[in-house]
């Protein structure tokens, strides 16, 4: 029962957070000096008379008070209408759907790669604590976590696309190719560099975390006993280490969705990859308010889903949490 209660509490909290995100982002956008009506008229590309402008303003309800505008927007939002993008002249929901598919491929690859590589390196670092490999890998981790993601992207672009010419420069498909003709292989080739950028900047966190956890485990009494029984170091890692450190690592990886999304904004911009990240930056630069708001909300939803998954995973899988339920 307690577990169910906790799950319900978490859901309520998430929903309340999402509402607050919508309110805050709406308020921030409204406070902006950028005039959306002016942007809309610029986008039309034709001259607009002052009367027509007044009509547009009346239609959009620009003069109405902030709260009224917010609630009418929220009402539409709850019905699934995110408005129409000023930049692309298409429904925002459609654009987000399309772009998210691209971003999901990118973030999914980077996330899985960073998780696996980070975890393995963390194990190696923990096993060779304070010896050569550990010191070297630790330095690498510190440097990589201080590296600006977009600069790393530029370096990779320079080396692999410009100098070596192995991989394409940008976008998610060859320029000029029809959508139907793009093969999976071409898509993968366009995905390699952005995914590498994103995972290289994010694996250090999980590696250092795993290292610390493994060191804690190796210093415990039960590992001392296992050693006394004559178990080898790698057997100890397999029998006692992995079981204890895998779960925190997975949880941490789920709660890193925020950095993942932030990194994807930069990686996608460098490689002109048509995902959500590059869309949000373009939307802001071109004052495309509906798209900007839509993606902000979507990114918050994405992060919340990750945090929720991490919280639930912790409760469901961790046997210690389960025991706490019985006694408490």
């Amino acid at each position: 029962m307690k577990r169910l209660q906790k799950a319900i509490f978490l859901c309520i909290r998430t929903v309340s957070l999402l509402f607050a995100v919508s309110a805050i982002s709406f308020a921030l956008i409204s406070a902006s000096p950028v005039d959306p009506v002016q942007q809309y008229i610029l986008g039309l590309g034709t001259a607009v008379s002052p009367e027509q402008r007044a009509q547009i303003e009346a239609f959009w309800g620009v003069e109405k008070p902030l709260l009224e505008r917010y609630f009418s927007w929220l009402g539409q939002l709850l019905c699934g209408n995110l408005g129409e993008s000023l930049l692309y002249r298409r429904p925002v929901a459609q654009i987000i759907g399309e772009r998210f598919r691209n971003s999901l491929a990118l973030m999914g690859c980077a996330w899985a790669l960073a998780g696996i590589v980070g975890f393995l390196l963390g194990c190696v670092m923990g096993m060779y604590r304070d010896k050569g490999p550990d010191k070297l890998l630790k330095k690498v981790c510190y440097v990589l976590s201080s590296t600006p993601a977009f600069w790393l992207g530029l370096l990779l672009l320079l080396v692999f696309s410009v100098w070596l010419g192995w991989l394409p420069v940008g976008f998610s498909a060859p320029v000029g190719a029809l959508k139907e003709e793009v093969t999976v292989w071409q898509k993968v080739r366009h995905l390699v560099l952005p995914a590498a950028t994103l995972s290289l900047t994010s694996f250090a966190n999980i590696a250092l975390h795993t290292r610390q956890k493994l060191i804690d485990v190796l210093e415990s009494d039960y590992v001392l006993f296992a050693r006394a029984r004559g178990e080898g170091e790698w057997t100890i890692l397999r029998r006692h280490g992995l079981r204890n450190i895998l779960l925190p690592a997975v949880t941490l990886q789920f709660s890193s969705f925020s950095e993942l999304f932030g990194g994807s904004v930069l990686a996608e911009t460098v490689f002109s990859y048509p995902g959500l990240g590059s869309a949000v930056s373009e939307a802001g630069l071109n004052a495309d308010v509906p798209l900007f708001l839509g993606i902000t909300l979507f990114s918050a939803l994405f992060v919340c889903a990750g945090n929720l998954a991490a919280d639930l995973l912790y409760g469901v899988i961790d046997p210690q949490m389960g025991e706490g339920e019985k006694t408490g």
């Binding site: 909290r13 309340s16 957070l17 999402l18 607050a20 995100v21 805050i24 982002s25 921030l28 956008i29 406070a31 902006s32 000096p33 950028v34 969705f257 925020s258 950095e259 999304f261 932030g262 990194g263 904004v265 930069l266 949000v280 930056s281 802001g284 004052a287 900007f292 993606i295 902000t296 990114s299 918050a300 992060v303 919340c304 945090n307």
Partner: peptide, 24 residues
């Protein structure tokens, strides 16, 4: 705690873009 969760709930980069947009 709720406010902290809220700020952490939007990816930092996106939130900075939003605030920067709001302040011109």
């Amino acid at each position: 705690n709720w406010i902290i969760d809220l700020v952490m709930g939007i990816p930092h980069t996106v939130l900075i873009l939003l605030i920067s947009f709001a302040l011109g």
